[in-house]
Design a protein around this nucleic acid. Sequence first.
DNA 1: AATGAATGAGGTTTCATTCAT
DNA 2: TATGAATGAAACCTCATTCAT
Lengths: 217, 217, 217, 217
Amino acid sequence: MSTPPAFKRLPRAVREQQMLDAAVRVFSARGYHAASMDEIAEQAGISKPMVYAYLGTKEDLFIACLRREALRLIEAVTAAVGGAGDTADTDRPDEQLWRGLRAFFGFVGAHRDGWTVLYRQARGQPPFAGEVAELRARMAEAVAVLLGRAVAAAGRRVSEVDLDVMAYALVGASESLADWLTDHPDEDPERAATRMMNIAWLGADQLLRGATWHPAP
Amino acid sequence: MSTPPAFKRLPRAVREQQMLDAAVRVFSARGYHAASMDEIAEQAGISKPMVYAYLGTKEDLFIACLRREALRLIEAVTAAVGGAGDTADTDRPDEQLWRGLRAFFGFVGAHRDGWTVLYRQARGQPPFAGEVAELRARMAEAVAVLLGRAVAAAGRRVSEVDLDVMAYALVGASESLADWLTDHPDEDPERAATRMMNIAWLGADQLLRGATWHPAP
Amino acid sequence: MSTPPAFKRLPRAVREQQMLDAAVRVFSARGYHAASMDEIAEQAGISKPMVYAYLGTKEDLFIACLRREALRLIEAVTAAVGGAGDTADTDRPDEQLWRGLRAFFGFVGAHRDGWTVLYRQARGQPPFAGEVAELRARMAEAVAVLLGRAVAAAGRRVSEVDLDVMAYALVGASESLADWLTDHPDEDPERAATRMMNIAWLGADQLLRGATWHPAP
Amino acid sequence: MSTPPAFKRLPRAVREQQMLDAAVRVFSARGYHAASMDEIAEQAGISKPMVYAYLGTKEDLFIACLRREALRLIEAVTAAVGGAGDTADTDRPDEQLWRGLRAFFGFVGAHRDGWTVLYRQARGQPPFAGEVAELRARMAEAVAVLLGRAVAAAGRRVSEVDLDVMAYALVGASESLADWLTDHPDEDPERAATRMMNIAWLGADQLLRGATWHPAP
DNA sequence: AATGAATGAGGTTTCATTCAT
DNA sequence: TATGAATGAAACCTCATTCAT
């Protein structure tokens, strides 16, 4: 017992969510391998066979957790970026990026021991790396698009690869700050977003203006 | 008998290195949990009890691997940053940072499936997270110091926290690019370093000059 | 969906046959233990509880399959042996035996992956051995009776045990040829029956005439 | 210390035999599926992991049992058939066949709950059918060769297929009698062999002489 | 009548780890 | 020193079987 008593014979959809909740909790707390299906089932207030029946193998289950959380994150960010805004103002790329970051840090801050932890684990465990790589790629791609739009707006040209690299750097920096945020529970996600913007945007802005840095000859 | 054919009765130090080599190989290939002490011992050409006698438990062994590789990385970076240079020119913070990044990407590029993989794994596995966090902290601290020096040189003041955040962002971005580099074997590590500088330094530079970005009110 | 549309609310007898069909199919394909009640139910286009309600436990179900198929076999053979014939000619023991064999091989050939497979399995699995032994005994007994009649017709005497042994040998040889037939789908069951007769009857005939073989002293 | 208490640390070869002994015992008594690795290990006086280390998976273990027993049987029969004899007398095909049968029934009688039971089980269980089929084929082939030699000695010709069929029939009949023997513990294996010869040889002999049986037209 | 939901029980397998030689 | 032999413990997974709707 963990979730509300929620006694017996619930419809499948409900049970699945309960299981996923429990799984996220346990995976986060113990790590993928140390987590046992027994504990997950117990936490979900159900017997193991049901877990297998509904969500499949332990690996499947972890992936399901990962996907659910990733989806939520992506939805949050997407909504924030493309969201309500249709005034000229809200369409400025920097504003869009900022809204995205704010949503991102907000989400991470709100799921301090769910998403971030799963994500960290998945990156290292061979069977899940692919899943994560895909997610990262989607994020980076979205960022790259934003940056590209900004570039175009500034009337300049930057190679695809360069945009990609910048996007990955930005994603990495954000992840890093997300971790930092996870470890500093008192910090305000919104401030973190602003900080990130200050670093990222000013640099990007410079680049877009054609400034470059080169090692001394 | 000077250079032993590596047969038997090797001095302890040598054996330990062989074991660590094998362990790094196996941990990288299989992941911490999927790796078996059996395979590690076999790869090291030695029996399991020896592994336990010399390096202790599996967890100990992984940590030993992690430490050895981390040490190598840190040494490489440290040497590059503080290294030979004592002309005024080499002391410029940006040059130092760049040399550090170059060393970092060089190392990562040269240990594509050793360091990076261990590192990724360690981040997720609960028992090793601390070890990694410590390492990251050291890196970030070093970067923060560099940035701080640059700030001072520019005659400005930035709060500790801000420096920290910037440092973490930079470290994260670098890690992210390191991954990207690992996945793009044809890319030149040196170019990656330069790219990173272009993003990081220009932003940092702006910040140091007092420029800031703020969301539209 | 597997058997005909098999919609809803069928009379019990029909449902049972559908289940048995499915069960025979699955048991044959997977083997008793590897077969799962889930798959059987699915193949029968019905839910598991119905299977339990109608045919009982898994063991019961297997026995039911076995019995149904055995019954069919016995009916086919019996009909062929004792069947229509009442002319003097058809009453000759050899002709009777031959008709029986022909029916036997015909049945086996026509149920290549039903009967034979079940039968083979049942022989090995402890809980079903008895069932099979009984069936074999009935077959052997029938054969023994036939042989006995032939003996009597020849005006000779053979001990009960000897008749029994001959009958079991004949049954075994037939089973063996049945397997051989199952593995040689191009062979004609009728020819197999004739072959069997050539081996069996000539030997039996000799025996009945009092010929015997003895090891060299 | 005269009779080593057989306690601990036995060499691998010894332990393997102990395990196989135990496995044969348990598989025979319970049947493949009902047998548990736990019980086998316990019977062998060793812990489960050793069984897995030495003999592999449960399936492997069963096959190992099967092979060991089959090898013993084949060796016994082969030795008896081709064995010592080189006088003209012992070379007569019928004598050879008889010696083979005697060895066969002798072996079966002596391993009443080892070989026969394993064999029966293996025939039905899908994963082992192949192994058994191969063994049967070897037996049948050997018999066919013997029959062929007898045919040649009689100056006649019989098609390959016919020899094969006869051989399979003979093997099947022998198996059947072996079962019968297993169920009649008081019967003498040697008499069973003679009985089998009386049936088989007289029939074969007739066939070799050109006699045939045909259904009435 | 019919089924989705649910579970107790047990089996195979794999490890990290340690004796005893 | 070095290792073959040995094991306790636990994890994953599957299944036959039954409620409650």
